[in-house]
Design a protein around this nucleic acid. Structure first.
Lengths: 153, 153
DNA sequence: GCTGGAACTGAAAATCTTTTTCACTAAGGC
DNA sequence: GCCTTAGTGAAAAAGATTTTCAGTTCCAGC
């Protein structure tokens, strides 16, 4: 697996190519995102990042996330409570698999079969489908195992 | 197709069964939802409802939507701008088909094939999938026809 | 048909997320 | 090292949503 350091490097390069500057606040935000186990809200990112760089402003977090989202290196997910959370994106078009217990997220792809379903639906309804949002919610292997154990105990 | 009047009646009954009261403000909000062509935000609902009942408060709209969502007669959809929109729900588990041009929404179901895909994914990842959110975005037949025409003209 | 109490209402204030403004700072090409 | 300009943080503003509260209305029980 690609190391966190390599990805930080890669992201920084993307920012530079895009005419942006790789500043200390931005680097800290990127590190927090890369180390996260779950999608994080701007507020959560700010809190964690301040442990390393206390003067960081929440506004800078928002602006950095904007940049990273534009570069398609992070993805934004909708949370039930109305606010947004961000996670590092893996390249290509991906769907999201979320654990309802620990919040862990995982992107997956390769669901070509979905395209067949969409074609069927287009034929049936007359709609033209251009993009889609698919999020699956459930339990990750670890949480599933823990819940099983709880039942036995 | 079931008439708007019948659905209003049905919703009112659900509220009463649930120990709630069917008041004038609630009835107006329900009417606006049933007449809508697209999902509406609380703000939009309030504006439309005030044409019929000017003293309606936005807070009451929020509270009524809460009740209706709890009763599962309306569904909440996430909008890109961060706020929420609501539309009458059709019974059962449905997915959403949205027109990016006019906003028209349509629920659909019967995608049993999706279950097969989910089973495959569970086997591959170890996750247990409990629920899913699927939204397809594209063009409704009307908007598609209009855009085609625009290209020709 | 009254009446009392609980459910409901609207306005205002509070809360929370996100955006804008602005004076100051610091990347990084030269 | 210097200069330009992108980037920064604080404060204020803008929205969406929730809470509070005093007053209103529904309706079950008489």
């Amino acid at each position: 697996m690609e190391t966190k350091g390599a990805r930080l490097e890669e992201w920084s390069q993307r920012i530079a190519e895009h005419g942006g500057r790789v500043t200390r606040p931005r680097r800290v935000v990127m590190q927090v995102l890369l180390e996260a186990e779950t999608p994080l809200s701007p507020q959560e990112i700010c809190t964690r990042a301040r442990r390393r760089y206390p003067s960081l402003g929440l506004v800078t977090v928002y602006r950095t996330l904007d940049v990273l989202e534009t570069l398609a290196v992070v993805r934004r997910v909708h949370r039930e409570d109305g606010c947004h959370a961000y996670l590092p994106a893996t390249p290509g078009h991906h769907h999201l698999l979320l654990c309802r217990r620990c919040g862990r997220a995982m992107e997956f792809s390769g669901w070509d079969a979905l395209d067949g379903l969409i074609a069927e639906l287009e034929a049936a309804t007359g709609y033209r489908v251009e993009e889609h949002l698919l999020q699956l919610i459930g339990l990750c292997p670890r949480c599933y195992a823990q819940l099983k154990e709880g039942e036995r105990g």
